[in-house]
Simulated assay, not measured.
Amino acid sequence: MTADVNDPAARARRMWGLADYSALADRLAPASEQLATTLPDPPGRVLDLAAGTGTLAVLAAGRGATVDAADLSPRMVELGRDRTHRLAVAWHEMDAEDLAFDDGAFDAVLSSFGMIFAPRPERVLEQVRRVLPPGGRLAFTAWTPAGFMGEMALRMREWLPQPAGAADPGEWGREEVVHGRLAEAGFTDVRVRPTSLPWHFDSGPAMTQFFRAHSPSHHAAAAALGDRADAMFAAIEQLGAPDGGPVRVDAEYLLVTATAAERTGR
């Protein structure tokens, strides 16, 4: 546990193995379906980056892609491999900041609410650009800071500040940040489309029960806070259901696509 303090990758590897993520992955599936529609025809070889349990990998394989799925968490890789064992999906336990693939190995890189959680965005984009040839496609989704998920993350940070050495994932949800980062990393034709995902629960406590059971970040926060966790979740319930009734929110996120540009110089 002590080794995690100064190692963001170790913290993430441990955290993403917590909770029963499959039910949360099902809730996020519509975003993965959107990402799958961005694939070229034919799709060629595709990398599902920070793949979770493989929802996007399954969809890409269903479109005829040969898929490599990479995730930092051994537990996610185990679940994903079990889920896709009959499909053309190869699984890798791998850090998004250190991809062990050849230059230009993929026709497309996709990431559904995944690579945005890597602590060093510039390093992730450097790696993604490296494994794409000129003309290769990048597509990913990111929660907006002003949307429900961004606001919830902000509430959680009132109890647990952002870990040292890790960038704020919410910055990926700012259009100007996305354009700047992708241009700097060697991408062109950047397109950003705001969209949303429904988060509907019968009540605030039902939402809390779901997140505590199925969200690794909420599970880890509850464990770290101990007796203070109930107060944090009460604040989240107030955000989702101010009147104490059912939770009916549409969580805004960005669907981002970009093309790997020709390299200039050496």
Score class of each variant (00 low, 15 high):
Gln127Ser: 14
Arg130Ala: 14
Val131Ile: 14
Leu132Met: 10
Leu132Ser: 05
Leu132Tyr: 07
Leu132His: 03
Leu132Val: 02
Pro134Phe: 13
Gly136Trp: 00
Gly136Arg: 00
Arg137Ala: 06
Arg137Glu: 05
Arg137Gln: 10
Leu138Thr: 01
Leu138His: 02
Leu138Ile: 00
Ala139Cys: 13
Phe140Lys: 00
Phe140His: 00
Phe140Asp: 00
Phe140Tyr: 06
Phe140Val: 00
Thr141Tyr: 14
Thr141Gly: 13
Thr141Val: 13
Ala142Glu: 01
Trp143Met: 04
Thr144Asn: 13
Thr144Ile: 09
Pro145Val: 02
Pro145Gln: 05
Pro145Tyr: 06
Ala146Pro: 09
Gly147Ile: 07
Gly147Leu: 07
Gly147His: 13
Phe148Tyr: 15
Met149Pro: 09
Gly150Leu: 04
Gly150His: 04
Glu151Leu: 15
Met152Arg: 15
Ala153Lys: 09
Leu154Gln: 15
Arg155Asn: 12
Arg155Thr: 15
Arg155Leu: 14
Met156Ile: 09
Met156Trp: 06
Met156Pro: 06
Arg157His: 10
Glu158Tyr: 02
Glu158Thr: 11
Glu158Ile: 03
Trp159Ile: 00
Trp159Ser: 10
Leu160Ser: 08
Leu160Cys: 04
Leu160Asp: 10
Pro161Gly: 04
Pro161Ile: 09
Pro161Asn: 05
Pro161Cys: 05
Gln162Ala: 15
Pro163Ile: 03
Pro163Val: 01
Pro163Leu: 02
Ala164Val: 08
Ala164Phe: 07
Ala164Met: 07
Gly165Pro: 13
Ala166Arg: 05
Ala166Gln: 09
Ala166Glu: 11
Ala166Phe: 01
Ala167Ser: 14
Ala167Val: 04
Asp168Trp: 02
Pro169Asn: 02
Pro169Ile: 01
Gly170Trp: 03
Gly170Thr: 06
Glu171Trp: 04
Glu171Asn: 12
Trp172Glu: 08
Trp172Thr: 05
Gly173Pro: 07
Gly173Phe: 05
Gly173Tyr: 02
Arg174Pro: 03
Arg174Thr: 03
Arg174Phe: 02
Arg174Glu: 11
Glu175Tyr: 01
Glu175Arg: 11
Glu175Pro: 06
Glu176Ala: 08
Glu176Met: 02
Glu176Trp: 00
Glu176Arg: 05
Glu176Phe: 00
Glu176Leu: 03
